[in-house]
Simulated assay, not measured.
Amino acid sequence: MDDNVISDAVVKDVARRLLPELGAAGLSPDAVAGDGGFARTAVEAVFPHRDDLLTALVIDAYDTSGAAMEQADRAAAEAGASAGARLLAVTRALRAWSFAHPGEFTLIYGSPVPGYHAPQDTVLPASRTPAVLAGIVRAALEAGELTPPRRALRGTPLLLPAAVELFGGVPEAPFSDVIERGIVLWSNLIGLLVFQVFSRTHDSVKDEAAFFDYAVAVAAESIGLEVPLEGGTTD
């Protein structure tokens, strides 16, 4: 390989291979160059700083995981699935991606990397996951598939304008807090994946795939959505 000519895709492939071993904090031009067998200057010609490389990896991780969810949702919707079945399909897709890419999952959902601050470029890719969830909740609301909540949100509104815009506006009562409930669902999903990817449940749950489906169904109850589980689970 020409020491002075290398593509960003090659650099990112090497960096992704190193993520499970070194962690994001351990990535450096030297580490990538050494593992890939090319000069450090070749790496720096593509990604001048470590943070440039991390940002590229973060964007790719959000994009590929979001794309997996979007593909699963399209397939489920085209098959005429209910909103609850669509939710199960997209969360299973994110779970499959997370286990297949633990280094990248840790990069975007694990502990912050010391000294790294994600730039604005990462915001749009990061929104793909909540956008899929929001689309399913909106579809459920429009199809009359949501059950009104027993507890209504009281007091000062809790949302930033961007969250309202992503959902398409605040629904009327009794579903006026469905966006807040959707954010709870989203955070529960990521927390569940953190527990499973980092093996926090392996000593208490005998079937983690089945438990994942059950947990998603329980979390979905908070927005009044029924997730069908009779179809079984997938690894």
Rank of each mutant, 00 (worst) to 15 (best):
D8I: 02
A9H: 11
V10K: 07
V10G: 13
K12S: 10
D13R: 14
V14E: 04
V14K: 04
A15S: 14
R16G: 10
R16Y: 08
R17G: 15
R17C: 06
L18F: 07
L18M: 09
L19E: 00
L19D: 08
P20V: 09
P20D: 02
E21I: 08
L22N: 03
G23K: 01
A24K: 00
G26N: 05
L27W: 01
S28G: 13
P29D: 02
D30W: 11
D30L: 15
A31K: 14
G34H: 03
D35E: 14
G36F: 00
G36C: 01
G37C: 01
G37D: 11
R40T: 12
T41M: 12
A42L: 10
A42Y: 03
A42F: 07
E44F: 01
E44G: 04
A45K: 13
V46H: 12
F47R: 01
H49K: 15
R50P: 08
R50C: 02
R50L: 08
R50Y: 03
D51W: 04
D52I: 00
D52G: 10
L53Y: 09
L53F: 06
L54A: 08
L57F: 13
V58P: 05
D63P: 06
S65F: 05
G66K: 00
G66E: 04
A67G: 12
E70R: 15
